[in-house]
Amino acid sequence: MIDDDPDISMMLKMMLEYKGYKVITADRVDEIFQAISNKSFNLIIMDMLLSGINGTDICVQLKGKDDTRNIPVMMISAHPNAKELCLQAGANDFMAKPFDMDDILNTVGRLITNPRN
């Protein structure tokens, strides 16, 4: 779970953990790749605008690397034009802020069971 707003990443972490998922949060670019290289992940949830870096750029990098290409990426943003930009960058799904927790849980469930969809 990558978001520069710790409240949101914490909130999603608590919610997902409450639902039985294991969640690791990161809010800085160097941390992201460090975390990814150490562990295998079933899903990456990422905010589009991170302080100092664009989430779409990270998405493009992830989708360009063999070892991360197949990890589904769900992007979230409050930015009005974000959906299009994120999907263009290769994100598997997009959720606009403020989102509904049920939608998040449904999408997370779907992406983890069927990563290609």
Binding site: H79, K97, F99, M101
Partner: peptide, 25 residues
């Protein structure tokens, strides 16, 4: 205006998420 809507949505996302978390608990 875009930025304002983004900025306003961020705390709302947080509030909404926590309230929904609390509700489900």
């Amino acid at each position: 205006i875009k930025m304002a809507s983004h900025e306003l949505k961020t705390p709302i996302t947080s509030i909404k998420g926590y309230v929904q978390l609390l509700l489900s608990i």
